[in-house]
């Protein structure tokens, strides 16, 4: 059900391209959408993002929703995340691929069994800090397909990320008993460039 909802949202994001939008509205429209498998953001997560440059460095921010069904976790888990990506070092494999490395930081908010942002009334004040938030730094690799023609393929890139949850990092720093390689996790994802497609379509219309 939730997966269906996510796919509907993804579909509508592409529907933006069907309208003749003004420059102002264009700025509000996310320039890319993402679908991701794993990475502590649910079995599958999806969302939208914006690209921009700071000091000539390519940056992206994406808001994502992820879902993990009961079969994996004892109860349904909903995950909202804000993903901050810095892309650097572009390598080009002629005719085929453009590779970009990335540094990412995800802020993960989870709604799961016995998690809380504000403590229930029966706890004394300050008994626990919120256990709903986590951070995950990661490094990533993004591959953009190279195409001379304006095809859908040109707007698609695939990415993979290798990350570690902040609590695991804390255990590794605090104690010598936890192996970092046991706690690294990987994700796979697809990024679809909406705005590039949009601007190309507007260009054709004029």
């Amino acid at each position: 059900m939730r997966l269906t909802l996510f796919l509907i949202i993804l579909f509508f994001s592409n529907m933006f391209s069907a309208f003749n939008v003004t420059a102002f509205h264009q700025k509000l429209i996310p320039d890319h959408s993402k679908v991701q498998f794993a990475g502590n953001q649910g079995f599958l997560s999806g969302g939208f993002g914006y690209s921009f440059h700071i000091l000539r460095i390519e940056r992206e921010i994406a808001i994502m929703y992820g879902y993990l069904p009961e079969e994996f976790s004892g109860s349904d888990i909903h995950i909202f995340s804000l993903k901050n990506t810095t892309l650097f070092n572009v390598y080009e494999l002629p005719k085929y691929l453009k590779l970009k490395c990335s540094l990412n930081l995800s802020i993960i908010y989870t709604l799961a069994n016995n998690t809380f942002t504000i403590l229930p009334d029966y706890y004394p004040e300050g008994y626990y800090v919120s256990n709903s938030f986590h951070f995950q730094p990661s490094i990533g690799l993004t591959a953009n397909f190279i195409s001379k023609h304006n095809t859908v393929l040109k707007n698609i890139s695939i990415y993979t990320e290798l990350g570690i949850l902040e609590q695991n990092l804390y255990h590794i720093i605090k104690t010598g008993r936890v192996n970092i390689f046991d706690r690294l996790n990987m994700s796979l994802g697809i990024r679809y460039s909406i705005k590039e497609r949009l601007s190309n379509k507007n260009l054709k219309d004029t």
Partner: peptide, 24 residues
């Protein structure tokens, strides 16, 4: 860099984590 990621990918399925709150 590519080989590094591919190697991690094939280390095993345990490398994929869905949530710190799951009981897998």
């Amino acid at each position: 860099v590519f080989i590094f990621f591919v190697l991690f990918l094939f280390v095993g399925c345990d490398i994929f984590e869905y949530s710190p709150y799951d009981d897998d």
